[in-house]
Amino acid sequence: MVTKPSSRYAPRPDPNAPTTGSAKDAFISPSPQAADEMSKLTIRLLKSMHKDVKAAALAEDVSVQEWIQEAINQKLASKPAS
């Protein structure tokens, strides 16, 4: 019987551990109220761009979702008024 070496896989986060607000806690679902106010968007990115986005979010200690939302907000803020 072949077993997977445990050193290759990251341990699962402890659901009872206190959160730090870091990118590592991004798997936590928003509150029911926040989820009701949000909509879901699926985008396709080149693998290299996805890797760059993940690295940038990690460097800023935010989730990929937060990083992308901030990028969108910056782009919308720089858009001339119609």
Rank of each mutant, 00 (worst) to 15 (best):
D36G: 11
A10G: 01
L58W: 06
E66M: 13
M49Q: 09
I28N: 01
V2D: 00
M49T: 07
K51N: 04
N16G: 12
A57P: 01
G21N: 05
S31L: 15
E70R: 15
R8W: 15
A56Y: 10
M49V: 03
A17P: 01
R12S: 11
K40C: 03
L76F: 15
M49F: 05
A26I: 02
P30I: 14
A81T: 13
A56I: 04
M49G: 00
P5C: 09
P30Q: 13
L76R: 12
S63P: 00
K4I: 14
L76M: 15
I28Q: 03
L46I: 00
L46E: 12
P5V: 05
L76W: 14
V62T: 07
I28K: 08
D52W: 02
W67S: 00
S39L: 10
K4A: 13
D14R: 01
A77W: 02
N73Y: 09
Q69W: 05
R44K: 04
D36C: 07
A71I: 07
A71Q: 13
P5Q: 13
Q69H: 10
I68P: 00
I43A: 13
D25H: 07
K24T: 10
K47Q: 10
E37K: 12
R44Q: 08
L58R: 06
P11V: 07
S39Y: 07
T42P: 00
E60T: 08
P13C: 02
K79H: 12
D14I: 09
K4C: 03
T19L: 10
A23W: 14
L45V: 07
A57G: 03
T3R: 14
T3G: 05
D14C: 03
R44V: 09
R8H: 10
T42V: 13
R8Y: 13
V64E: 12
D52F: 06
R8V: 05
D52C: 03
S29C: 08
V53C: 06
R8F: 14
L76V: 15
V53A: 13
P11Q: 09
P15R: 06
M1Q: 03
V62Q: 04
A55R: 12
I28G: 01
N73K: 14
R8T: 09
A57N: 07
K47I: 05
Q69P: 00
A17N: 01
S48V: 11
S39H: 08
S63R: 02
I68E: 02
W67D: 03
S63T: 05
A10T: 06
Q65I: 06
S78E: 15
P11S: 10
A55T: 11
A23G: 06
Q69V: 14
S22Q: 03
A57R: 01
L58D: 08
Q65K: 11
K40N: 03
E60Q: 15
V64F: 05
P11W: 10
L58F: 09
T42N: 14
A17W: 03
A17I: 06
D25Y: 11
D25C: 08
V53L: 15
K40E: 11
S29T: 09
A59M: 06
R12H: 04
S48R: 09
Q33H: 12
D52I: 01
R44P: 00
V64I: 14
S22M: 04
R44M: 07
V2M: 07
